[in-house]
Simulated assay, not measured.
Amino acid sequence: MDSRHGFVAVGLALALAGCNAVGAPRLPDPQLSGRDAQFMALVPTADVGAAYERYLVDFKTSEPPGSIVVDTKNKFLYLVEPNGKAVRYGVATGQEAYGWTGRAVVGGMQEWPRWIPPKDMLERWPHLQPTADAGGLPGGPDNPLGARALYLFENGKDTLYRIHGTNEPEKIGQSVSSGCIRMRDIDAIDLYGRVKIGANVVVI
């Protein structure tokens, strides 16, 4: 985890970037084919509001291009681009009791990942035990991990936190998850196509 000063610096950058989507270009959706086109025709859709659409925005940060910065307070994820720019996505974040902040790296990436309920979730919701016993839920339109998942690692170990799609897009902009960062599936697909294994992730 970075120093407090590092997080303050990132926070100041976010404060400047949070409102600057006015007049910023909205980025087009990625082109879909194969399984993506088949599944995306079946996933739920929702109007998330203009603020949570995908934009190219001005963004000043010391993080190198290719890094991901998540602003849990304002519900934005920024993918740092060269020349003081970032791609900004709307997200849903963890409820206060389950929120996570810190530094990590992208240690794994999967398309339409299988979902296995984690232990802490099984303790809260025992009705999910049959899903875990069956080896999880295969990837698809009904899977809560959505179209893509980025697996966050810290010091070489899986944190069990993810950046992933969602089958509940109406909750983008809210604090609803068990700590993971949720995105609209189309945004998760877009981010997946831009990110590489080993990318830095800062969650504040």
Rank of each mutant, 00 (worst) to 15 (best):
M1R: 02
M1C: 09
D2G: 05
D2C: 03
D2I: 08
D2P: 08
G6C: 13
A9T: 13
A9S: 08
A9F: 05
A13G: 15
L14D: 13
A15W: 08
A17S: 11
G18I: 11
A21D: 11
G23E: 14
A24N: 02
P25S: 08
P28T: 14
D29V: 11
P30T: 11
L32R: 04
S33P: 00
G34Y: 04
R35Y: 14
M40S: 04
A41V: 04
A41L: 07
L42Y: 06
P44R: 02
P44E: 05
T45I: 04
A46R: 04
A46M: 10
A50K: 06
A51K: 15
R54S: 04
L56A: 13
V57Y: 06
D58A: 12
T61G: 05
T61S: 14
S62F: 15
S62R: 01
P65M: 10
P65T: 07
G66M: 03
V70H: 01
V70E: 00
T72S: 12
K73W: 13
K75H: 14
L79M: 04
L79K: 07
L79P: 05
N83S: 13
G84Y: 11
V87A: 06
Y89H: 13
A92K: 07
G94V: 01
Y98M: 14
W100C: 08
R103M: 09
V105I: 15
G107R: 04
G107N: 10
G107P: 11
Q110N: 11
E111H: 10
W112M: 08
P113Y: 03
P113M: 00
R114H: 11
R114A: 07
W115Q: 10
W115I: 00
I116Y: 15
P118K: 05
D120V: 06
R124V: 15
W125S: 06
W125R: 13
P126H: 14
H127N: 10
P130V: 01
T131Q: 12
D133R: 02
A134V: 08
G135Q: 08
P138G: 00
P141E: 11
G146M: 02
G146H: 07
A147P: 07
R148E: 00
R148Y: 02
R148G: 05
L150V: 05
Y151V: 15
N155P: 03
N155F: 12
G156N: 04
D158N: 15
D158E: 01
T159F: 14
T159R: 14
L160C: 12
Y161T: 09
T166C: 09
N167G: 09
N167Q: 11
E170V: 07
I172P: 08
Q174S: 15
Q174D: 13
V176F: 01
S177P: 03
G179S: 10
M183P: 00
M183E: 01
D185T: 00
D185Q: 06
D185W: 00
A188K: 02
L191H: 03
R194I: 06
R194D: 14
V195K: 02
V195I: 10
I197Y: 13
G198A: 07
